[in-house]
């Protein structure tokens, strides 16, 4: 692991353990820092504990009978470990959950309205919507049809747009590339990068598609079996031989849904 030189990170998670149903330990002492304004990736194979890590940060664990049993999570210097999810959203943390969970029976426009924070005036909301439609012009075209009938890519864009309405300073995304064609992944990641640069929004990106993720982030963490097993700059990770072997695969565009079974016998596990 390498040292980082930085001011106070926007998010710092220290030795966090999560228990589901009081018995199942899904992450075992994970520490992750997100420096302000940076894009950070969290990589790892199925069941590694990536989603659990995000849920611990966003407070969504509670809905799945999980809890942080050790460690602490600080956002902008404040301890948020036991806070309600809705208070964390108000503070500026928004979590785009796994699986493009848009509100299917609402239109894209209503999806955006639903996420409006308490007290946001109509004019501010409309300005937010216009900004989001500018980032995602495909959504603008379909703003009044049912969200359930949008294509997978459009739904992912809507899920991201819906999160942006909450005006987050830390946006967390759980596998936004899952099941999308490579050109769509490139389009969505490009937009994320643009928002990050234009608005200084920090991003924590969970991905199995390491190849695409390492192209846009500055730094990455690798999680296996509930532990961080590697952490470094995107360049360092891309040139690491283990990562190359197990995560970047041989061929172009291979993501490791196809090669995940290899990761079961990785040597850094023991």
């Amino acid at each position: 692991m390498q040292e980082k030189v930085e001011v106070q990170p926007i998010l710092s998670m220290n030795s966090v353990e999560v228990l589901y149903d009081n018995v199942m330990m899904a992450i075992k002492g994970v520490s992750v820092q997100v420096p302000k304004g940076e894009m950070i990736a969290l990589l790892g194979s199925n069941g590694a504990g990536k989603s659990t890590t995000l849920k611990a940060i966003s407070g969504l664990l509670k809905a799945e009978r999980g809890r942080v049993s050790r460690g602490e999570i600080k956002f902008e210097g404040t301890d948020i470990t036991g806070m309600l999810a809705q208070n964390r959203v108000e503070m500026g943390i928004c979590h785009v959950i796994e699986g493009r969970r848009v509100f299917e029976h609402l239109t894209p426009d209503e999806n955006l309205t639903a996420a409006a924070p308490k007290g946001m005036s109509r004019s501010v909301l409309n300005a937010e919507k216009e900004k989001i439609y500018n980032y995602f012009p495909r959504l603008a075209e379909r703003r009044n049809s049912l969200a359930g009938y949008l294509s997978g890519g459009e739904q992912q864009m809507l899920a991201i747009g819906r999160a942006l309405v909450t005006q987050p300073s830390l946006l967390m995304l759980d596998e936004p590339s899952l099941g999308l064609a490579p050109f769509l992944v490139a389009e969505i990641f490009g937009i994320l990068q643009k928002i990050n640069q234009e608005e200084g929004m920090s991003v924590l990106l969970v991905e199995q598609n390491a190849l695409a993720a390492l192209e846009i982030v500055s730094e990455g963490y690798l999680i296996e079996n509930g532990r961080v097993v590697m952490n470094g700059t995107a360049e360092a990770l891309k040139s690491n031989s283990d990562i190359q072997e197990f995560y970047l695969g041989g061929g172009e565009g291979t993501d490791f849904h196809n090669v995940k079974h290899y990761s079961r016998r990785k040597r850094w596990l023991s």
């Binding site: 966003s58 407070g59 969504l60 809905a63 999810a85 809705q86 959203v89 108000e90 928004c94 979590h95 785009v96 959950i97 969970r101 848009v102 509100f103 299917e104 029976h105 609402l106 639903a114 996420a115 924070p117 899920a159 819906r162 999160a163 309405v165 909450t166």
Partner: peptide, 10 residues
């Protein structure tokens, strides 16, 4: 429509 997604946006 979706409790979890609702929580996720506050």
């Amino acid at each position: 429509d979706d409790y979890m997604a609702s929580w996720s946006v506050g």
